Simulated assay, not measured.
Amino acid sequence: SRFLQWWDDTGSRKTIATPDAQNAIRILTIHKSKGLGFKVVIVPFGDWEIDHKPSKQPVLWCHPDKTPFNQLHLVPVRYGSVLGNTIFADDYFNEKLHAFIDNLNTLYVAFTRSKEELIVFSPKPKKPEKISSMSDLLWNGLSTDGYDSTREGESLLPLASHFDSESAVFELGSWWHPEKKKNEDRPVTEIPMQRIHSVSPDDRLQLRLHGKGFFFDNKERKHGTLMHEVLSRIHTKADIRQAVEGYRVSGVINREEADVLCGRLDALLDKQLVAGWYDGTARILNEVDILYGKGLAKRPDRVMIYDDQVVVVDYKFGQKESKTYISQMKEYVGLIRQMDYKQVTGYIWYVELDKIEAV
């Protein structure tokens, strides 16, 4: 019942973002597409008006400059060609100019979103000699030889030679086809769901405090916590500065502390065994949950998947070693082996003790 109530209130207006790799078509307005780029763009209705729509003509607020009408400060007049022969002609033609520019800019946006291929559907004009819509403009521009010229320092494409007036098709360039992905031949595995379990929010919601960064009881704890969080955001050594800078910008640390932290991380990641973990040769999973039934999960600090092995690392910033850490790492290794990874090695990295223990 709560879901249905949410759907009635806000859910029905939500949108779903499709991944770029998904085999799907995104439908959006030209204005929404500003600043975006797509491999292929289809404009299904390339025929909007150059001027304001006759059914949606705006009201112009004009100040008359001729007597006796100039005694009126502002006068609302309906936009239309009839104004061209009145005292409001200047306001009319100024508005007409801006309408032309706005609609041509819309055409420019629509035509510059594609990276590989642009497909436009534009109806044939009933009166080719009159240009009142974008379709009139496109047909006139593509079928007129007058555009096949060369300006100083700029060559223009001979558009008319690529336009077949009989079939009403303009075609320039070669067709684009997406590259076949390596994993397309892999069969899709579907997992049927027999039941969907529902748990009351009162039984599963917990508060998660995000203000821990402002309540360190000592410098050592602050340093260790920051080191752990920064390491969880690093894939390769080149990511150090960017990860630390995020904490400096948010006010958790100052510039001096950021420089010290970067220097410390640079030195740690240069160690002989550690350097191979951050050289970019492995697929990195930082703090990713391992689900193993009954709603339970384990989260190792860092998992590195190589071609022939998997390496698991847990960071520890305390001053003491513990057998609990070894048991914890053995659980990680065992769970990953159940995923059909045969060669799995775990390491407990006691950062402050400068010790790495293999498990």
Rank of each mutant, 00 (worst) to 15 (best):
H63M: 10
H98M: 11
D136M: 10
S327F: 08
Y332K: 02
P300Q: 04
N140W: 14
T10A: 12
T18K: 05
A168M: 03
G35L: 12
V120M: 11
Y341L: 07
R78S: 08
D90I: 13
N105C: 10
P64T: 11
Y108R: 13
E95L: 02
G211P: 00
T225W: 02
P123K: 02
E357F: 04
F111A: 15
Q22V: 12
K355Q: 12
L107H: 11
T225V: 03
I290C: 00
F121Y: 11
G80K: 06
T189Q: 08
K237R: 14
L142T: 13
I196M: 08
R221L: 09
V249M: 07
S122P: 01
H197L: 11
H98A: 01
N183K: 10
I234T: 01
S132H: 07
R13Q: 14
S174N: 14
V40S: 10
K316H: 05
L137D: 00
D259P: 01
K124T: 08
G293Q: 14
K53T: 11
G35S: 06
V310M: 03
P58L: 04
T106S: 15
P19N: 05
Y247E: 02
L172N: 10
M339L: 11
F69V: 14
Q57N: 13
D266V: 04
P44I: 00
V77S: 06
D148Q: 13
R337V: 07
F121V: 09
V313G: 01
E49Y: 15
K130S: 08
R337S: 11
Q328M: 04
F215D: 01
Q272W: 00
D239Q: 00
D9Y: 07
L60Q: 02
M304C: 07
F111I: 12
W139Y: 15
W61R: 13
D308F: 03
Y247V: 03
Y347C: 10
Y79H: 00
L157W: 01
I326K: 05
Q5K: 15
T324M: 06
Q5G: 15
N183M: 02
K39W: 02
P178D: 10
Q71L: 15
G80R: 10
P58M: 05
I119Q: 07
S322W: 04
I42F: 12
Y325L: 02
R204I: 07
Q22Y: 15
Q194I: 05
C62T: 12
N103G: 12
Y332M: 02
L353C: 01
S132D: 09
M193T: 10
V109N: 03
L273Q: 01
F121R: 07
L285E: 15
E220T: 03
D301C: 02
V288R: 15
K298A: 12
G11V: 11
H177P: 00
D289G: 09
G246N: 09
S149D: 11
R264A: 12
N85C: 06
N183L: 05
M227S: 07
A24C: 03
D239T: 00
M304A: 09
C62M: 07
D145F: 14
S322A: 05
E287W: 14
S200P: 11
I191R: 04
F170K: 08
L83N: 01
V188Q: 12
I16P: 07
V109W: 02
Q57V: 10
M134L: 13
